[in-house]
Design a binder for these strands. Structure first.
Lengths: 154, 154
DNA sequence: ACCAGGTTGTTGACATGTCACCGACTTCGT
DNA sequence: ACGAAGTCGGTGACATGTCAACAACCTGGT
């Protein structure tokens, strides 16, 4: 603590690569989604769990947990998507505080049209370049770092 | 193309982990930076290359290339940082279109105060959990995916 | 010298994300 | 039954990122 340990040159290089990948991969995905289907990554993130749920309805709390978003962010995004007719809001029968988010027909068409090309893009850019061994270790690496981040957040 | 290939369950799991890591790690870094030094990740991203350059001055074009940002994003962020006294803008002697970005004394103090804790955080969350082998493979994985993304962007 | 085409930086409009806060409701201990 | 504390979703203000368009400038071929 009194004596800061800097990153080694190898570590700095890997860290720079990670930041670059995060940026470039995000950009590639945003572009592909926007061009092929007119959806943003935020749209897709919410439509995907909705389309996989029973009747295309999820409680906002559940949807937020699925995607790992804060309530405020989720609420804003739902408002924007509601305005474009992708989802609707409904009252929650069990809990008068709650609100349910329902996929519209238009929303279902949008996600079903977008999903194949999106999956293909992920597979092509992320997984096709990796050997089975690399993919296994990659998964382990993600687990270890995630563990550290979550212990950190407490 | 006519027949979409979906992700295998293993791939879907790794992909979900990647997205989660991207989100959680970003959040951890934002919080740490903001709390310890009052800087945002965007501030830090620009201050770091500036502080390492001769005299703390870089042409906007160079700074943009360093961080991989578009011109518009860079210009907006510089405006915000200028307003807070972290950097100043100057005319470019070589090229009348250009503009130079100069670190202020306040900007240098901010980055120098923030850097050790930031580096420590990266090391602790990302590299300490990895074995040397894992880190080596991780670097290879990033290279391969980056290669695919860049071939994709053309 | 000239000008068509590329480069550089900025701007305004808009989309997205964060923060602090609120109002309504539920939960839980008493 | 009651109230304190927690949960849930929403809102407004603001920070950040994207996009299209623009003005000014440089560059290269002619």
């Amino acid at each position: 603590m009194s004596e800061p340990r800097w990153l080694t040159p190898d570590q700095a290089e890997v860290w720079a690569k990670y930041r670059r990948l995060r940026r470039e991969l995000q950009r590639a995905q945003d572009q592909q989604l926007q061009q092929d289907s007119g959806l943003s990554a935020a749209d897709y993130a919410l439509l995907a769990p909705l389309s996989e749920s029973a009747d295309g309805v999820l409680r906002a709390r559940e949807l937020g947990a699925e995607v790992g978003w804060e309530r405020s962010r989720l609420s804003h995004q739902i408002s924007r998507m509601e305005k474009r007719g992708l989802v609707t809001r409904e009252a929650c029968a069990d809990d008068a505080r709650g609100s349910m988010v329902r996929l519209t027909e238009k929303g279902r068409e949008a996600i079903e049209a977008a999903a194949p090309a999106h999956a293909d893009n992920v597979r092509r850019l992320v997984f096709d370049p990796l050997t089975p061994d690399e993919m296994r270790v990659f998964g382990d690496v993600l687990d270890r770092i995630l563990g550290a981040v979550e212990r950190n957040a407490g």
